[in-house]
């Protein structure tokens, strides 16, 4: 199958609040190809989770999808109701969350929780689903799986719970797995185990993964492509090595430069000077302009267009510096001194 598994076009989501609408997502375009791992990085609050929750239909009641189009293998997600979504949610798309302890039902046995999607989507009997759940637990590396399946989440460690979450999300062998900061709540050593587990499972099943993370080290080791988000928009995207080596957007560059050293291991998303913009306001130009050391008149007046840079159409950016007419851009890219 060719063509993207998931494509998101011009998605805009806002939250109603007492102080007016919060425009959490302001025109996101993304494509996820079969079998690939797409990483989404960006500062806290830039809209990574909201974007992916919109895909899964998990937005709270006070959220509005303002515009956009989401297509998962021909399913027009935004036009579907809950029942229609439930035909693919949990079976063809799985999702895992940041804090596995709160994401698991505390009063239900782990095995039952893993078996649930199997019973609902595959119509397996209770015994068959249970047996499959134990099998899945074994597959994600939980020892003594038969006993473990009968335990409640409070008897599990964080890492084991996340394994169980993965087993649950993968129970029906989905084509797409959305992982929202799957390792943020875990110890470093456990993080590595969980990530390599995901990688291994991906290799056997050929599913695509969308991996939301703050950790550029994880991006480098896990992802094929990366999308950098800022204030509700994708500002740069492309293959991981290109984006890190030839960072086009000043924000990406700032991130990369502020990193103490991508090879030393301390790779958490570095902080850069200034605050992200207030999403309740209309942002006229480039959202990064107040913090950008290259900001120009244009940046404050009009939002930059998306520019596809690389020859293979893979690497894109939203920044005025990459406008053909911008002289400063040439200096920025080192084409002129």
């Amino acid at each position: 199958m060719s063509g993207p598994v998931l494509s998101i076009k011009d998605l805009a989501v806002s939250f109603r609040s007492r102080q007016g609408a919060v425009n959490a997502v302001r025109g996101v375009d993304l494509e996820v190809m079969p079998g690939e791992t797409l990483a989404i990085v960006g500062e806290s609050g830039c809209g990574k989770s909201v974007t992916m929750r919109t895909v899964m239909g998990l937005l709270p009641a006070h959220a509005d999808v303002r515009s956009g189009d989401i297509d998962f293998r021909g399913e027009k997600v935004l036009q579907q109701n809950t029942a229609q979504r439930n035909r693919w949610r949990g079976s063809r798309v799985g999702m895992i969350f940041q804090d596995p302890l709160s994401a698991m039902n505390p009063t239900m046995r782990i095995g039952d929780q893993i078996a649930e999607p199997l019973r609902v989507h595959r119509g397996l009997s209770r015994q068959a689903a249970q047996a499959k759940a134990v099998e899945l637990l074994e597959k994600v590396g939980v020892r003594d799986a038969a006993t473990r399946a009968r335990q409640y989440p409070n008897a599990f460690s964080g890492g084991m719970l996340q394994r169980a979450m993965i087993a649950m999300a993968l129970a029906c062998e989905p084509e797409l797995l959305i992982a929202d900061e799957p390792t943020t709540a875990l110890d470093v050593t456990v993080q590595v185990q969980v990530l390599s587990l995901m990688k291994a499972l991906q290799q056997t099943s050929g599913m695509a993964i969308v991996l939301i993370t703050h950790d550029l080290g994880i991006v480098a080791s896990m992802a094929d492509r990366v999308a950098v988000m800022y204030a509700g928009q994708v500002v740069e995207y492309g293959p991981v090595d290109q984006v890190f080596r030839d960072s086009l957007h000043p924000y990406t560059r700032a991130l990369r430069n502020a990193l103490p050293g991508m090879h030393t291991g301390a790779s958490h998303l570095p902080s850069i000077a200034g605050q992200p913009p207030d999403l309740r306001r209309d942002i006229a130009g480039c959202a990064f302009a107040p913090r950008c050391q290259y900001a120009m008149t244009a940046c404050h007046q009009q939002a930059p267009m998306r520019q596809v840079i690389a020859d293979d159409q893979q690497h894109g950016v939203c920044c005025w510096l990459h406008d053909e007419a911008c002289e400063a851009g040439r200096v920025y890219r080192g084409e002129r001194t």
Partner: peptide, 23 residues
């Protein structure tokens, strides 16, 4: 590709601080 017509100071630099009007 034709270059769109921009105002003459369209790409004039504005220091980051000056534009900082965060509420």
């Amino acid at each position: 590709m034709s270059t769109p017509a921009y105002p003459h100071d369209w790409f004039a630099r504005i220091p980051a601080q000056a534009a900082d009007d965060l509420p």
